[in-house]
Amino acid sequence: MEDAVKRAKPIVVEFDPDFMLASMDLWRKSLDMQMPIADEVKIHFMKNRASCWRVSRRRARLGGSSCET
């Protein structure tokens, strides 16, 4: 295992704060029905709104977000 670690190439991650902020804003607006979205997505959000917020808050601390289905 040690050899594999030595051969592993580093992963380069680019962080774009503006993109992250825009994504977060779109996510919030979609949950609040403040932007046009497909009816089936709207229904999904309405059915799972509490779950989406709960998971969103929990995953925001871990670096991601999605809804439980």
Rank of each mutant, 00 (worst) to 15 (best):
E2K: 10
E2M: 08
E2D: 10
D3Y: 08
D3T: 14
A4P: 04
A4H: 04
V5E: 11
V5T: 08
V5H: 05
K6Y: 03
K6N: 06
R7L: 14
R7V: 07
R7S: 13
A8H: 00
A8T: 05
A8V: 01
K9V: 09
V12Y: 15
V13M: 08
V13F: 05
F15I: 14
D16W: 01
D16I: 06
P17D: 07
F19N: 14
M20I: 15
M20C: 14
M20T: 15
L21H: 08
A22C: 07
S23P: 00
M24I: 14
M24N: 15
D25A: 09
D25V: 02
L26H: 11
L26Y: 14
R28H: 09
K29L: 06
K29N: 03
S30A: 10
S30L: 00
L31T: 01
D32L: 04
M33E: 12
M33G: 05
M35D: 01
M35S: 04
P36G: 05
P36I: 03
P36Q: 02
I37N: 02
I37F: 01
A38D: 09
A38T: 00
E40N: 12
E40F: 08
V41N: 11
V41G: 06
V41A: 15
K42S: 10
K42Y: 04
I43M: 08
I43L: 11
H44Q: 07
H44C: 04
F45T: 02
F45H: 07
F45P: 00
M46F: 00
K47C: 02
K47F: 01
N48W: 00
N48D: 01
R49T: 03
R49K: 08
R49S: 04
A50S: 13
A50F: 03
W53I: 15
R54W: 02
V55R: 10
S56D: 04
S56F: 09
S56W: 04
R57V: 15
R59T: 11
A60K: 07
R61M: 14
L62P: 01
G64S: 15
S66Y: 10
E68H: 06
T69L: 13
